[in-house]
Amino acid sequence: MDLRIFTEPQQGASYDTLLAVAKATEDLGFDAFFRSDHYLAMGDSDGLPGPTDAWITLAGLARETSRIRLGTLMTAGTFRLPGVLAIQVAQVDQMSGGRVEFGLGAGWYEDEHKAYGIPFPKEKFGRLEEQLAIVTGLWGTKPGETFSHHGTHYDLTDSPALPKPTQAKIPVLIGGMGASRTPRLAARYADEFNIPFASLADSERQFGRVREAAQAAGRDADELTYSNALVVCVGKDDAEVARRAAAIGREVEELKENGLAGSPAEVVDKIGRFAEIGSTRFYLQVLDLSDLDHLELISSQVQSQL
């Protein structure tokens, strides 16, 4: 069972804060550091000191860490042209010595597009499908050959398809709860399928759809990694759980219902229930990035029991 730390920097975090969390992630034995790809805070947060760019952040962390995997849940397809994105991710993979993983989604938060002048197309899924075809196609083109794509949304002609990642195959993550198109896309392109903030029952149902889509595509469904992202709030006693819940503006019972919250034993038990439906990796959404003691407790009292 892999435990990965997942951050939401748009809610308020500088690069130095993210660096401290990433270094703790590495030092405490977690598998990876991931971050969201957003430019605008959500809810009541003022977002200070302001947003940081996902791939610029990961480029810096690539040079400041040595072991952990680095990636996005999920890169917004609306933010970058696919050819440029392929260059950016390949470069960060080189900078990290081959530790990058690439999560790509369609993009959904219209307000941040309005705030920063980013076009927000009405039809995003078709664009996402072409983006995946282009990015993976550029990476997969043999040196000395060229790549072309003539689609509805993007047109590339005789691209040299450079630079190449360090890894022979950068793992691709696709996620979501769509009933038909999302599983089909995952079956074609994904190495990992991720479900964000969903119940056991909904996760089991969606994993089943992805498995069926993989089999229909002639692929072994067990080739994919199945994962969940859930908010985490662990305390050594009830008082500490309550303090951490209050710090992120959440109620304890709601967190226990919808996330991984409570004592280490409670969290281990819930992870075990997700494991029974096929989940082998967890992205622990850490919302209070100043509380590094929280990560130490999870490492020593939760991860050690898995």
Rank of each mutant, 00 (worst) to 15 (best):
G140R: 15
P51Y: 10
E251W: 04
S36L: 10
I298L: 03
W108T: 06
E257G: 09
A261D: 04
I68V: 15
S148E: 11
V172K: 00
E8C: 02
D46V: 10
Q11K: 09
L224N: 04
F30K: 03
G259H: 05
G259C: 07
H294W: 01
A41Q: 15
P163I: 06
A221C: 06
A86Q: 12
T75Y: 03
F33Y: 13
V267F: 03
G50E: 03
Q167C: 02
T72C: 12
R99E: 06
G105S: 11
E253Y: 08
I298D: 05
R4N: 08
P183F: 00
Y189F: 13
A32I: 12
I87Y: 02
V302M: 10
D111H: 13
S14M: 07
K164T: 15
D37V: 06
P163R: 00
P264I: 02
G77A: 12
G77E: 01
G12Q: 02
A201S: 10
Y116V: 06
F102N: 03
A247R: 06
T25Y: 01
P196C: 10
T65Q: 13
R188Y: 01
A229R: 14
L289M: 09
G83E: 07
G151L: 09
D293A: 15
T166M: 15
G50S: 09
H149A: 08
V100W: 00
S96N: 03
I170Y: 06
A265E: 15
N258P: 03
S14G: 07
S14Y: 00
R188F: 00
A133T: 15
G151P: 03
T7Y: 10
K122S: 12
F147Y: 10
F102T: 04
L128R: 02
Q88I: 15
N258A: 14
G77S: 12
L81I: 05
I277Q: 13
A216C: 05
Q301H: 14
P196I: 04
A186F: 01
D2Q: 12
Y189L: 03
A229M: 09
T52G: 02
A133S: 14
T157V: 12
G117N: 12
R80A: 10
H294I: 07
I68N: 01
S304C: 10
I271S: 03
D16Q: 15
D93A: 03
G117Q: 04
L260R: 06
E276V: 00
D288R: 02
P171K: 05
K236S: 15
A201C: 10
H38S: 07
N228Q: 09
R273N: 07
